[in-house]
């Protein structure tokens, strides 16, 4: 029994030890075939690095960190008017479409000190206070608008950006 198994093992060994003839042009042909496969057919190449790079580029283009835009530099500013006799005061200007309903001012405990807070991006804005819905007043604490073409007083405020 052992002799028979030894002969079988010996034949297998002899078979495996035979030299294998490989075509020397095989590598070149394989590489040529790979090169001819269209890009969409290359299943082995992952797309995620390309997608990640595209996402980064898109994010940078949208956010534009080199362009510190208005929103990122906006200032929160408080506007105050002392008007003890007023029943209502609204702040209107270039920043709220001159709409009295957009920025009504509040008075604390009826003391006649009216105030409101708005957030403004860098820029130069014209504005005024509308008292009791009929009376226009400029801000006594701000520069006056010199080019008042509509016959009522206005003020200007400039919100600075970089370097301010």
């Amino acid at each position: 029994m052992f002799e028979q198994e030894d002969e079988t093992v010996e034949r297998v060994i002899q078979h495996l030890r035979r030299s294998v003839a490989i075509d020397p042009g095989l590598d070149a042909r394989v590489m040529r075939e790979i090169a001819q496969v269209p890009p969409e057919g290359r299943r082995g190449r992952p797309l995620w690095p390309l997608l990640a790079a595209a996402a980064v580029v898109a994010t940078v283009l949208v956010a534009r960190p080199w362009n510190r835009n208005a929103a990122s530099q906006a200032d929160t500013l408080q506007f105050v008017l002392v008007a003890p006799q007023a029943a209502s005061v609204a702040l209107v200007g270039d920043f709220n479409d001159w709409d009295p309903a957009r920025s009504p001012m509040q008075t604390a405990h009826g003391a006649g000190i009216w105030a409101t807070v708005v957030r403004l991006a860098p820029g130069r804005y014209r504005y005024a206070f509308l008292v009791n819905g009929v009376e226009w007043r400029a801000d006594p604490n701000a520069p006056a608008a010199k080019d008042d073409e509509f016959g009522t007083p206005s003020s200007v405020i400039t919100v600075g950006g970089r370097g301010s």
């Binding site: 209107v92 270039d94 479409d97 001159w98 709409d99 009295p100 014209r126 509308l130 226009w136 073409e149 509509f150 016959g151 009522t152 206005s154």
Partner: peptide, 23 residues
């Protein structure tokens, strides 16, 4: 936007139309 705001300023202040247009 500055042009629109100037027109809205005139409208809110009750300015006559020709004055708004001129502005």
């Amino acid at each position: 936007e500055p042009i629109i705001q100037r027109a809205l300023e005139g409208a809110t202040k009750g300015a006559p139309g020709p004055r708004i247009v001129a502005a």
